[in-house]
Design a protein around this nucleic acid. Structure first.
Lengths: 253, 253
DNA sequence: CGGTTGCTTGAATATATTCAAAGTTAGTGG
DNA sequence: CCACTAACTTTGAATATATTCAAGCAACCG
């Protein structure tokens, strides 16, 4: 449950070519020209504490981010405070794209742990589209991937039982985390509270607690240190009738 | 509840420049060059009956479509047959983009009424990205718009009460329909059954029926001819605490 | 130590599902 | 024109699932 975050003494700590994320097999290789552009597109790094609001609904953010490290989540609120968590954001994910394309943000993003982000300027997005069609295609691909994850989440909230939903959620987040090297060789530990789980599944806190208990009893997960340690992803997947994300590699901007 | 669909005697019935949809104020104006490319990108028209499956989960469709007329919906199934409707598709919407970008379809699309679609070849998508960055941007914008709608749907299914959910759904679909000229000067009639509503809201058919009854009692909608006539969109919006899609204009491919 | 945050529990209540059946409507074929 | 069917809507009752309310507990922090 740790994230490397060092004080921001320089505007540019990690060069894109040496980005540790890019070395992971999940991400497709970029050629030199693409890498050079992405490097120049990068305007700085942002590091935030756990609990920080990165982007908020209704605002008109001038930036676009790629997560370098840490965990976060996207959510929406109703007037009276009811909250729905839409998806989680992990290293390699892009945030703020919706806002960059369409003006105002329609959702908020909050950090679940300390986070380190790569910052891009939305104004240069058109330049990317003009000069780098391959990267433009990648951005559409990334938007489409988010859509696919939302489809799955909606299926889950709409049609799975509480137990299946919880199993799906934890398997889903843990398997995404694995792919970006979180948890290393051991088990993934997700830094969420049961309130976050409740707000993702569309259930009350009390009922979520009782549902998670069943997963604990089956030894599929452990709950500790204010987080969830996922012991048996395959078991969770079987319980939820979920076959996993069938991604081979994906782009990293 | 009618859709103009004439027999397909020619491969190309409507030229893009004269596309009746394009004339609507919802859609942004395209310049001649863009219009010429879109026209050349178009490979034909597809007209299908109510109930037809346009795209199905797991398949590897070679095509991309824009809806010219009629109603449809996107959905996913669980192994045991439980169905979740993810979103509705209306004239001006693009379908099959996810499949085109990422290979296999992860959801299915079915026609709710007779539909007329404009067909594009996925192989030429890269050509579009290379030669027409403005259109490439538009496609990303379209993907992002779908994501935004899914965010709203997820908020609704996860956090709204049954009554609020039903009100939101009908207001949402009706207001999208209005924008593309469906219903003309009168009230919008949505060609869905209560089973569709149930599968969208994540509720059982029986409970959905009892919930819709409350909307009927409040005279917000009427149910007839196997469809829903939306009488009072503002009333539905107020009930659901939903402020509407804040779109000005959007691209039409 | 006192305060806060997060987890846990039981009981009362509310919401939603399942089961079973019947009514309605439009369409089909005799 | 009528009987028959299929698809959709409606209803009531029994049951299951989930929420709310109300406490209490454990860990952590200043």
């Amino acid at each position: 449950m740790s994230v490397q975050s060092s004080p921001t003494d320089m505007a540019r700590q990690v060069s894109c070519a040496n980005c540790p994320l890019r070395a992971l097999p999940t991400f497709r290789a970029f050629d030199d020209e693409e890498l050079a552009f992405v490097s120049s597109f990068k305007r700085g790094e942002l590091s935030v504490d756990k609990g920080a609001t990165l982007l908020s609904e209704g605002s008109n953010s001038a930036h676009l981010f790629t997560v370098l490290g840490g965990w976060g989540f996207r959510y929406k609120l109703l007037e009276d405070g009811r909250r729905q968590i839409l998806n989680y954001v992990l290293p390699g994910d892009m945030i703020g794209l919706q806002g960059s394309l369409m003006g105002k943000m329609q959702h908020s993003v909050e950090a679940l742990s300390p986070m380190l982000l790569c910052m891009f300027e939305r104004d240069r997005l058109m330049e990317l589209y003009r000069g780098y069609p391959g990267l433009a295609y990648d951005i559409t691909w990334i938007a489409s991937r988010e859509e696919r994850m939302l489809d799955e989440n909606l299926l889950s909230v709409g049609r799975r039982s509480a137990l299946e939903r919880a199993a799906y959620l934890l398997a889903f987040v843990a398997s995404r985390a694995r792919k970006v090297g979180m948890g290393g060789s051991g088990k993934v530990e997700i830094p969420i509270t049961q309130q976050h789980v409740a707000d993702t599944l569309g259930l009350s806190l009390v009922h979520t607690n009782k549902t998670i208990r069943k997963l604990l009893d089956r030894k599929l997960v452990q709950w500790r240190d204010g987080g969830c340690k996922v012991l048996d992803i395959d078991g969770l997947m079987a319980l939820a009738d979920w076959t996993g994300l069938d991604e081979s590699t994906r782009p990293l901007l």
